[in-house]
Nucleic acid binder design. Structure first.
Length: 626
RNA sequence: GCUCCCGUAGUUUAGCUUGGACAGAACGUCGGUUUCCUAAACCGAAUAUCGCAGGUUCAAAUCCUGCCGGGGGCACCA
């Protein structure tokens, strides 16, 4: 702990000690990175606050602060201006420290050490293909898992499959009663069933409401779990799920465990959860009024009663979610049985719960975590708040952190909606709908991105083979899509415009990847052995700016992990890449001589590691050439 | 009706948790840069009543109240 190299943290701790502040974090609350025309690398606004308490002018308070801050290790100069205290880094000293302490683990952190955390994401209904809205969920969830893993957490990733819903039944109705073939040659099951059968069956429901009876029939069979219809439903769920996982694998998204909603019922985990809730009085039976016969959970703030069990004794979604959350946190008596689902491209085994007693295998421990994150779209905030509250009440004082990581949906721009055959008004933003067939499939979109990038890559790289160009194009397509999904505030809706999304002119992932390629190019051409101490030549502004990015990286990661903030990492990458490209244009590396060359080469290597780590965390595929 | 979220250059946005100097970028526009490590790049210019109106404060994009505009949620639905 604390042994990891973080020059900014060290500096702020030093400031805290000298100014009698509690910690580096407290100092951070007084920092402004805007120094404007006054120069300096960062600025302290503490004097402005103190002047009020101490009843002295800010200028005087700033001078007092300044007087306590001389001779700091990484600070060359401190200045007091207009009540601000401005700091200049001593980059020579910083290079010295980095040359000793910089290694592969740079920027990692111990905040998650010894802690297990479960992240649930994706959780797409198993009746259709992944569309770009789902990708936002998975991109966020996967990036969070990479981030938390980077700072030392033991992360368990689950994908929760609702295999009991009407959507699954719709596909069964289509195949069993309406003559749709079970599969289509050359088309992935998720695409065929989701794009074709599901949409068409729902259209037929409108024409012929009597068909709904068939759906009820299928649903009932699924609930009972036995018979031909239930078996067909199970098979179709697996086929679609495998198709979805294929898309996710392409995106570089992987899981540890598949959870089925039906298993929560089959294992009687809802019943267990229900009786545990009754025991502590978290649910009550309504005895009169229009909710008579229902069991409700009364949440504290509004005193609203949320129905968990209908008067016919069946459980609603939120109920099953509570049981699932209890399982995650080890609050539920009992555990699932597990078996292997398959090996993933990242070399990690994917597991699934199983009902089959014989096929159970020796498995890792999945549940019983203190912390969990559920990446679920923001429209389900109400239900999620119920789950959170229930879990906290059931935890009996044990500290539990249940985070609903809500994010806004991806909607379609009018232009894009019209391309899908909708009649959108010029100002209308259209919500995607699987049932109505209004969506952009992730596979299709990736294919188009890939095609465009491939042409461009071939155009620009005559020395790369066809195969190499394909790898570059695929990596870039994935990186672009994933970066776009995490770079904006999750609370803001993304209005997806297909033409804009396919316009590669805009900065972002391509820019970052290009920067990485330039870094790799220099290192490749240097043909130089590592080793030896790092010389400290006279530094240019561009050198210093890059160094500043490098020393800020650990703090960016720490804050990102603490606040589950991916946007901060995207912002860091973008400005760091810009700093590097500026450096690249201005300062020769391989053409420099002697110490300067050795120093710059080291600087490029360090920069590459930092940017590669950041890119990997948000799920991009770092490239050495493009 | 009750409630939550969003509103920052033409466009996409950062900053809002914890108030502090002239609100950062990017795309697009206009102009410039290639005998030198990848021009998918670099440099420069123009572009912002931070939705509106009040309030708190020495100081508000940031906090509070009201309003306007946009989206979501409040089902024994899934």
């Amino acid at each position: 702990m604390g042994s990891r190299l973080d020059i900014v943290e060290e500096t702020l701790s030093d400031i805290a000690a000298r100014l009698n502040l509690s910690s580096a974090d407290e100092v951070r609350t007084y920092i402004s990175n805007k120094t404007y025309g006054y120069g300096g690398d960062f600025s302290l606004i503490l004097a402005l606050k103190e002047s009020k308490v101490k009843h002295i002018p800010p200028e005087k308070a700033a001078e007092e602060i300044k007087s306590k801050l001389s001779g700091m290790r990484f600070i060359k100069k401190v200045d007091a201006v207009n009540g601000y205290v401005n700091f200049w880094y001593d980059f020579e000293e910083i290079v010295k420290a980095l040359s000793e302490g910089f290694d592969e683990s740079y920027g990692r952190d111990d905040q998650g050490k010894g802690k297990r955390i479960m992240i649930e994401h994706t959780s797409v209904n198993p009746n259709k293909a992944i569309h770009i809205g789902h990708v936002r969920n998975s991109a966020i969830g996967d990036a969070l898992s990479r981030l938390l893993n980077f700072v030392g957490y033991d992360v368990i990733v689950t994908n929760y499959i609702d295999d009991t819903g009407a959507q699954v039944a719709d596909n069964v109705v289509g195949v069993k009663f309406l003559g749709f073939p079970r599969s289509k040659e050359g088309v992935k099951a998720d695409h065929y069933l989701g794009d074709e059968v599901y949409v068409k069956v729902n259209k037929l429901y409108e024409k012929d409401p009597a068909l709904m009876e068939k759906r009820s029939l299928v649903l009932k069979a699924m609930e009972e779990g036995s018979g031909e219809l239930a078996a067909l439903a199970r098979d179709m769920v697996i086929d679609v799920l495998k198709g979805q996982l294929k898309t996710m694998e392409r995106l570089g998204v992987f899981y540890d465990l598949i959870n089925y909603e039906s298993h929560i019922l089959a294992y009687k985990f809802w019943a267990t959860a229900f009786s545990q809730m009754k025991e502590i009085g978290a649910v009550k039976l309504v005895t009169d009024g229009d909710k008579k016969g229902c069991w409700v959970f009364s949440s504290s703030p509004q005193g609203d009663d949320k129905i968990l069990v209908r008067s016919d004794g069946t459980v609603v979604y939120a109920g099953k979610d509570i049981a699932y959350a209890m399982w995650k946190h080890g609050l539920l008596k009992g555990d699932f049985r597990y078996k292997r689902f398959g090996m993933q491209r990242n070399g990690k085994e994917l597991w699934t719960t199983t009902l089959d007693e014989e096929s159970e295998e020796k498995h890792p421990v999945f549940n019983g975590v203190d912390q969990s994150i559920s990446v679920v779209d923001i429209r389900q905030s109400y239900e999620q708040s119920i789950v959170k509250e229930a879990i906290e009440r059931l935890s009996a004082g044990k500290p539990i952190r249940y985070v609903h990581y809500g994010y806004e949906v991806v909607a379609l721009s009018p232009n894009t909606a019209n391309k899908l055959g909708m009649n959108a008004e010029e100002k209308d933003v259209l919500q995607m709908s699987g049932r109505k067939g209004i969506y952009i499939n992730a596979d299709d979109f990736l294919d188009r991105l890939y095609g465009l990038i491939l042409d461009e890559t071939k155009d620009k790289n005559h020395e790369l083979s066809e195969e190499e160009c394909k790898v570059v194009a695929e990596s870039l397509a994935v990186s672009v899509l994933r970066y776009e999904m995490i770079r904006t505030d999750p609370k803001k809706m993304i209005v997806f415009d297909i033409d804009e999304a396919l316009n590669l002119e805009s900065k972002g992932a391509v820019y970052i990847e290009y920067t990485l390629s330039r870094m790799a190019g220099i290192i490749r051409n240097s043909a130089e052995e590592d080793g030896g101490s790092v010389p400290i030549p006279d530094l240019s502004d561009a050198d210093r700016k890059l160094l500043r990015g490098i020393i800020e990286f650990p703090g960016v990661i720490k804050a990102a992990a603490k606040n589950l903030d991916l946007v901060g990492i995207a912002g860091f990458m973008s400005s760091f890449a810009s700093d590097f490209n500026n450096f690249y244009a201005k300062e020769p590396v391989l053409k420099a001589e002697g110490d300067l060359r050795r120093f710059r080469l080291w600087l490029v290597k360090a920069s590459k590691q930092v940017l590669t780590d950041a890119a990997s965390i948000v799920g991009m595929v770092p490239l050495d050439r493009m």
